[in-house]
């Protein structure tokens, strides 16, 4: 038996350490916020949405593109709900007392989450990009991210999903059918890509929600979650 002795290379060691210094905390932070699981969930949602959309459109009595409406509203909602738990830490007050630039990190959170979900869903929506496809998926992702971001400072990260879900659930049922563009300001999750008003509302939601969250962060969980 021979033992292989690797010559010690101090530079290599140093490089390894600095890599660990940079990446390990980020990974730890990500894990503490449950991000790896959320990413898996988002991928699963995207695949399920793709399958559902395909099935809905191609079944016998399909009404065409607009049978994808539930997917176009539901998939971004579910993906954002899964990601929303990561908006706050286990102990928000403790975290805030640490010396990290929280505002930058929060902005990173929102943008990262939007990009990830947006890309995943746009990708599966590209098969038929217009009429309840990629565009609407991206728009609704922005809208729901804005809603959870605005909710987190008020309700805490654990409950931030509630307004988005309740809103989507009610709008889907209560929206006048057929979908009217005049009602786009409140039925934006169900609108077609041509409805400019829906896009305006969504952009306002996204910008407003992100600003609120970046400034205030998630509400600490101490007395909120019960």
């Amino acid at each position: 038996m021979t033992s292989v002795v690797t010559p010690l290379d101090p530079r290599r060691d140093q490089r390894a350490r600095s890599f660990a210094h940079r990446v390990a905390p980020a990974w730890l932070h990500a894990r503490a916020r449950g991000i790896p699981l959320a990413v898996l969930g988002i991928v699963a949602v995207a695949l399920a949405a793709w399958w559902c959309a395909d099935w809905l459109v191609h079944r016998e009595w399909s009404t065409g593109a607009d049978s994808r409406v539930p997917v176009v509203a539901g998939a971004p909602l579910l993906a954002v709900v899964l990601a929303s738990a990561g908006l706050g830490g286990q102990d928000e007050e403790l975290e805030r007392s640490t010396a990290v630039r929280w505002r930058v990190r929060r902005l990173g959170h929102i943008l990262g989450m939007t990009l990830l979900i947006g890309c995943a869903l746009v990708l599966i929506g590209l098969w038929e990009p217009r009429e309840y496809g990629a565009f609407e998926l991206a728009r609704n992702t922005l809208g729901f991210v804005g809603l959870v971001a605005a909710s987190a400072p008020v309700l805490g990260s654990r409950l931030a999903w509630v307004p988005s879900f309740a809103y989507a659930a009610v709008v889907y049922l209560a929206a006048p059918k057929p979908i009217l563009t005049e009602a786009a300001w409140w039925t934006w999750p169900l609108q077609q890509w041509g409805a400019d008003l829906a896009v305006l509302v969504v952009v306002a939601l996204f910008v407003g929600g992100t600003a609120l969250y970046v400034m205030k962060g998630a509400r600490p969980a101490r007395d909120a979650d019960e």
């Binding site: 969930g41 909602l77 899964l82 929303s84 738990a85 879900f165």
Partner: peptide
């Protein structure tokens, strides 16, 4: 899991 409630809802 903290995600049970939202996942149940959906």
């Amino acid at each position: 899991s903290r995600l049970v409630a939202p996942v149940v809802a959906v």
